[in-house]
């Protein structure tokens, strides 16, 4: 147990400088943009006085490190500044959109695991046979397909066709309902976007699981188990599978970033009012505090989820506690 604690502390110590760096990048981004941030924020038509006023308000006249310290101090307290356009606190804007993005990301993860686990396992157990070849080709296509295009196709092929040919309108062409508001509608409305976003991840995880199972099947301990009469089912589903799936947990954790990033695009395709759409709208509105807040929040969430996954892996896989760096 002490090992786990040490391991967690080690990972935490790694996360702190990374988070500091990430916050600095989010902070400096606005300053690196060509031109005066205040001018950028107010637009070309603002008067010099307005710009000077905003510079004062934002503290842009102070030295950079003082500004950063202030930004960081506020961010830690949950204050990410105010939107230039709506004047609402950035934190409130983000929190209002967050449930949609979370619903999409979680559903995508579920979809991708639901596809990847059975196909990956089956592919490995039937290596070289038809099931294996088909699932590998499909996986390759899945990795090669841009998710937003898949989203468009799903809208055309599933939503439009079902609606126009059979009068089934369960999949909305646009928008998403939260499961907390209406569970049934919520699930149906998230299915197509989740499939669009989850397919590439599914393909990736499937490949990993297939490779992992193939690796494990050839380990000596499998022969030992066989030599001691342990049933093939127990060998496959208890011994091999556990060991094969554990390392993929880390990969899935790393791909949470893909899910968050990908949701920006998928939200645009399906018109989902999540963080991604907020980000895109803010970009076109040149609403930099909002963009800054989203970038910082997403980086923090990403680092935190990686940390969580690492710790989870460390607890589940006894080998890691001794391994150290290869985690």
């Amino acid at each position: 147990m002490n090992d786990i604690l040490q391991y967690i502390i080690k990972r935490l110590l790694w996360a702190v400088p990374v988070l500091l760096g990430a916050s600095f990048v989010a902070f400096i981004m606005v300053h690196l943009a060509p031109g005066d941030p205040a001018r950028l924020m107010l637009g070309e038509r603002a008067s010099a006085a307005q710009v000077a006023q905003l510079r004062m308000e934002l503290g842009l006249n102070k030295p950079l490190y003082v500004q950063y310290a202030g930004f960081l101090g506020d961010a830690i307290q949950g204050d990410l500044g105010r939107s230039i356009r709506s004047q609402q606190p950035v934190t409130d804007l983000i929190v209002g959109r967050l449930p949609y993005t979370i619903q999409l990301a979680v559903a995508s993860l579920v979809v991708s695991l639901a596809i990847a686990l059975p196909t990956g396992i089956l592919g490995a157990l039937r290596k070289g046979r038809l099931t294996d070849h088909v699932s590998r080709v499909v996986a390759l296509l899945g990795i090669s397909m841009p998710n937003f295009w898949l989203g468009l196709i799903l809208i055309v092929v599933v939503a439009v066709e079902l609606s126009s040919r059979f009068g089934i309108d369960v999949f909305p062409l646009f928008g998403m309902t939260l499961v907390t508001e209406d569970p049934v509608e919520g699930i149906f409305s998230v299915m197509l976007p989740a499939f669009a976003l989850g397919t590439a991840l599914a393909a990736l995880v499937m490949r990993m699981i297939r490779g992992g199972v193939l690796d494990e099947i050839n380990q000596s301990y499998v022969r030992t188990a066989r030599a001691y009469g342990i049933s093939e089912d127990e060998i496959t589903y208890v011994y091999v599978l556990k060991n094969a799936i554990l390392p993929t947990i880390t990969v899935v954790g790393l791909q949470l970033g893909y899910l968050i990033g990908g949701s920006v695009i998928i939200e645009t395709v399906f018109g989902i009012p999540g963080i991604g759409q907020l980000a895109i709208n803010s970009i076109f509105a040149q609403d930099f505090p909002v963009i800054q807040g989203i970038v910082l929040l997403v980086a923090a969430a990403f680092v935190a989820s990686n940390l969580f996954v690492d710790v989870l892996y460390g607890m589940l896989d006894p080998r890691i506690r001794y391994g150290g760096e290869n985690a």
Binding site: Q219, S220, Y221, R223, T224, A225, A227, Y239, K242, N243, L246, D317, P318, R319
Partner: peptide
């Protein structure tokens, strides 16, 4: 078996 370290399931 020869090498007990690999002959047992590590997890």
């Amino acid at each position: 078996f020869q090498d007990p370290m690999t002959a047992f399931n590590p997890t």
